[in-house]
Design a protein around this nucleic acid. Structure first.
Length: 665
RNA sequence: GCCGGUGUAGCUCAGACGGUAGAGCGUCCGCCUUGUAAGCGGAAUGUCGCAGGUUCGAUUCCUGUCACCGGCUCCA
C-alpha cells in the first residue's frame, strides 16, 4: 500500500498531508461532526469519496450554503422514500434543494391531503433513525434506463440529458442528471445497516453520509406543480419541506415565518382599518378606508412633488379608449387575454386601459416637438385595469384595478443613457425616504427566448441592452441578469428592495422602448432640421401604489413612521375633565398640519392606551391634572417609552419635527 | 387558468353520529371618572358563502358554484 500526498484546506489555510491509498474523505473529518461532505479539487463529493494523489480537499460544513443544500436534498430523498413506502404507486419527479428547504414532486393517483404530511413525517423519522447510508453508484445510461423503467419521469430526464438538454430539463432537474463533467449518471442507493437496499434514486449527489445526519426537518405544505414547469404538462403533486443543521435553526426559521405572518398586509389592513376587498366588487378590487386613504394621499402628494422636482410634467388621461390605440401601441395582440374585454358602443370598441403609455404618446404627438424640448417628461397616476388570472390575484400585491405612478421620458437616443441613470437615482432616493435601504438591480433582456416574442430589430435590441447594462453597471449596485425577462417592446431594469425582514420585492422598473415611438410615428425636429424618432423610457417608481402600500405595511409591520401614519397623535385624557384641555393641544397640532385624534370614550385611560398601542399610533399624548397645571402633556411612544411633563409648545414641535424629517420613532 | 385546502356573528374561533348554533373581543345601553397595554353589569347580533339534490327534516351528507388561502403557470 503506497502513500498519497494531498492538501487539506480549511478557512484559507493549506496543510499538506500524507495518507494511505484508499483513504476516503471522511477519514480526514472523523472528529468533526459538522462536516458532511467534501470539496475535492473544487468539486462537491460525498465523504465516502476515495482520495487520489495530489487532491486538494476541503470539508463542507452542514451549516454552510452548500452544506445546507446537501442536507436538504438528502432530506428530499428521505421524503421520497417515505412517500413511496406509503403510496407504492407514486412516481418520482424531481426533488431539489431550494432556498430554506426542498421539495419533491410526485405523480400520484390522488393528490396529497395536508393531513398526509404527518404520516409522511412519521415515516421519515423512522428512516432517519435507521441510519441508512447514501451510497453512490455510477451507471451507464442503458443500465439506468433498465433500473428506472418504472419511473417514467426519470427516464425522460435521462433522455433529455442524452440529447444534450439536461440543463433545460427543468429548473432543479440538474440535481438528478446534470453537472457531472463526463456526463456520467449516478444512482444513490439508500442502504440499511445490514446492507440491504431500502430505496434508490437517480441523482447527481452528493449526499449526507447517512440519514442519521439530518438534525431537524419539517414538511411545510403540499401543492401542485407542472412537470418541468410547463403549463402544458401534467401537474404533479409537490411537497415542500424545510431542513436545518440544528433544532434551533429550524425553530428560528419557523419563528421567521410566524413573524412574516404577523406582518401580513391583508391582516394588518383589516386590523388597522386601512382597506378591504369587498366581495361585491370582485376579486382583485380594493377599497381604501379613511386611514388607508391618508397613507395613499401622503404617498401621492410626495411622489407628485418629487416628479415635478425631477423635471416631469403632471398630466392626466382617461381610463378608457377606443381599441385602435392599443393596436397602434402593440399591446393588444400581446395582452388581449389580460385586458378587460371591449365594450361595443356606437360601432366602436372601447377598452379599459391596462397601461398609460399610449395616451402619453398622444400628448407628445399633439403638436410638433423640437429637440430643444427633450427630454420631455410626462407623469400621471394612471388608473389601469388588468384581468389577472383568478389564481394569481391576492391582497394588494396582485390586483385587477391599480394605480400606477407612470412616467415616460421622451429623449433623443443620445440622451437615453443619462436619462436612465437619472431615473435610477430618482427611484433610489425615493425608496430611502420610505425607509427601504437595501437594493439590487435586475436587468431583463431577451436572452435566448424565441425572437418572435419581441418587437424590433436586432440592432435596436443590442443598443438598448447595452445602454441599460451600462447604466446598471454605473449605478454601483449589485446586478442580477434576467435573460428572457424583457418586455416585448424593449429590455428593462427593475429595482429589487429588501424589506425589514429580508424579503425582496420588485418595485420600480425602467424600460427602454423604441417600438412605440415607431408605432406611433413619434418625431422631433433635430438641430439640423431633420425629423428624428425619439426613444421613450417608461418608469414607475412605486410601480403600483396599491402594491407599494402593501409592501410598506409589511415592511413597517403596520407601525408607520409619523409622516405616513394615518393618526400621528392620539390624545388620551386621564379623566373626562381633561378632554377640553387636550382639545386645545390638538388644535395647536392640527394647525401645524398634524393628524390628531382624541379618545373621549368612556373607557379607562389604560384601555385607551392599549387601543392606541394596537392601532400603532406613533405618539400618545396623555394629560391629567398634573399636566394641566404645568401647561404640559405626557408622551408615550409605541415602544412603551414615556416622557412626562413636556410643555405643550415643545410637544407640538417634537411631533412636527418627526413628521418633517420622515424619521421612524 | 390548473391542483389542493378553507368558508359558522364586524373580528378570532368553538360546535353538532342530520332535529335551524355558542365563546371571547368589538358594537349598543347603563354604572364607574380613572396616571401609562383590557373597570363592572346588561342587551342585540347570524339566510352556518350561494344554488340545487338526498331526506319527514340539511348549516351538517352529495353535486355544482362563488370567494378566500397555499402552490404551479403568468405578471406590460
Amino acid at each position: 500500500m503506497s502513500d498519497l500526498s494531498i492538501v487539506v484546506t480549511h478557512a484559507g489555510a493549506r496543510e499538506e498531508r500524507t495518507v494511505t491509498t484508499g483513504t476516503r474523505a471522511w477519514e480526514l473529518y472523523a472528529d468533526d461532526a459538522d462536516v458532511i461532505a467534501a470539496r475535492v479539487n473544487g468539486v462537491l463529493c460525498d465523504l465516502a469519496h476515495e482520495l487520489r494523489d495530489g487532491d486538494e480537499v476541503e470539508g463542507v460544513a452542514i451549516d454552510s450554503k452548500h452544506g445546507r443544500d446537501i442536507l436538504r436534498h438528502s432530506t428530499a430523498h428521505v421524503m421520497a422514500q417515505a412517500v413511496q413506502q406509503l403510496w407504492p404507486d407514486a412516481r418520482l419527479g424531481i426533488g431539489p434543494p431550494i432556498e430554506n428547504g426542498f421539495y419533491y414532486d410526485f405523480d400520484v393517483e390522488t393528490p396529497f391531503h395536508p393531513d398526509d404530511l404527518d404520516k409522511i413525517e412519521t415515516a421519515m423519522r423512522k428512516i432517519i433513525k435507521e441510519g441508512q447510508r447514501f451510497s453512490r453508484r455510477p451507471v451507464a445510461d442503458a443500465e439506468a434506463l433498465a433500473e428506472l423503467k418504472d419511473e417514467p419521469y426519470k427516464l425522460e430526464l435521462i433522455g433529455l440529458k442524452g440529447s444534450g438538454h439536461g440543463e433545460d430539463a427543468a429548473e432543479g432537474a440538474n440535481v438528478e442528471v446534470g453537472g457531472s463533467a463526463d456526463g456520467e449518471l449516478t444512482i444513490y442507493d439508500n442502504l440499511r445497516r445490514d446492507g440491504n437496499l431500502a430505496w434508490k434514486d437517480l441523482c447527481r449527489g452528493p449526499h449526507l453520509p447517512t440519514t442519521k445526519r439530518i438534525p431537524a426537518f419539517k414538511l411545510m405544505r403540499t401543492a401542485a406543480a407542472y412537470w418541468r414547469g410547463d403549463e402544458k404538462n401534467k401537474q404533479l403533486q409537490r411537497i415542500y419541506g424545510t431542513a436545518w443543521e440544528s433544532k434551533d435553526a429550524l425553530a428560528a426559521y419557523l419563528a421567521q415565518i410566524a413573524e412574516a405572518e404577523k406582518r401580513d398586509h391583508r391582516k394588518l389592513g383589516r386590523e388597522l382599518d386601512l382597506y378591504s376587498f369587498p366581495e361585491e366588487l370582485g376579486p382583485g378590487l380594493v377599497v381604501f378606508h379613511p386611514k388607508g386613504g391618508v397613507i395613499r394621499r401622503v404617498m401621492e402628494d410626495y411622489v407628485r412633488r418629487r416628479h415635478i422636482e425631477e423635471g416631469f410634467s403632471y398630466v392626466s388621461t382617461p381610463h378608457i379608449s377606443k381599441d385602435g390605440l392599443f393596436h397602434t401601441s402593440g399591446h393588444l395582440p400581446y395582452y388581449a387575454d389580460t385586458m378587460y374585454p371591449p365594450m361595443e358602443l356606437e360601432g366602436a370598441r372601447y377598452q379599459l386601459k391596462a397601461m398609460s403609455c399610449p395616451m402619453h404618446n398622444l400628448i407628445y404627438q399633439s403638436r410638433g416637438r423640437s429637440y430643444r424640448e427633450l427630454p420631455l417628461r410626462l407623469f400621471e397616476f394612471g388608473g389601469v385595469y388588468r384581468y389577472e388570472k383568478s389564481g394569481v390575484v391576492g391582497g394588494l400585491t396582485r390586483v385587477r384595478g391599480l394605480t400606477q405612478d407612470d412616467s415616460h421620458s421622451y429623449v433623443t437616443p443620445e440622451q437615453a443613457a443619462d436619462e436612465i441613470k437619472h431615473l435610477l437615482n430618482f427611484c433610489l432616493g425615493l425608496f430611502r425616504d420610505f425607509g427601504l435601504e437595501d437594493f439590487y438591480l435586475e436587468l431583463s433582456t431577451r436572452g435566448d427566448t424565441p425572437k418572435d416574442k419581441f418587437q424590433g430589430s436586432e440592432e435596436d435590441w443590442a443598443t438598448a441592452e447595452a445602454i441599460l447594462q451600462q447604466a446598471a453597471d454605473e449605478s454601483g449596485l449589485e446586478l442580477v441578469p434576467d435573460p428572457g425577462g424583457a418586455v416585448f417592446y424593449g429590455p428593462k431594469i427593475s429595482i429589487q428592495a429588501k424589506d425589514a425582514i429580508g424579503r425582496t420585492w420588485q418595485l420600480s422598473t425602467v424600460q427602454y422602448d423604441f417600438g412605440q415611438p415607431a408605432g406611433f410615428g413619434l418625431e422631433y425636429v433635430a438641430a439640423d432640421g431633420s425629423h428624428q424618432q425619439p426613444v421613450m423610457i417608461h418608469s414607475a417608481k412605486f410601480g403600483s401604489i396599491e402594491r407599494f402600500i402593501g409592501v410598506l405595511v409589511e415592511h413597517y409591520a403596520g407601525a408607520f413612521p409619523p409622516w405616513l401614519s394615518p393618526v400621528q397623535v392620539q390624545g388620551i385624557p386621564i379623566a373626562e375633565r381633561h378632554v377640553a384641555y387636550l382639545e386645545d393641544v390638538a388644535k395647536q397640532m392640527s394647525e401645524r398640519g398634524l393628524r390628531v385624534e382624541i379618545d373621549d370614550s368612556d373607557d379607562r385611560m389604560q384601555k385607551k392606551i392599549r387601543n392606541a398601542q394596537l392601532q400603532k399610533v406613533p405618539f400618545m399624548v396623555i394629560a391629567g391634572d398634573q399636566d394641566m397645571e404645568a401647561r404640559a402633556v405626557s408622551f408615550r411612544y409605541r415602544d412603551g417609552r414615556q416622557d412626562n411633563g413636556v410643555p405643550v409648545s415643545e410637544a407640538v414641535e417634537r411631533v412636527a419635527a418627526a413628521v418633517a424629517s420622515r424619521e421612524q420613532v
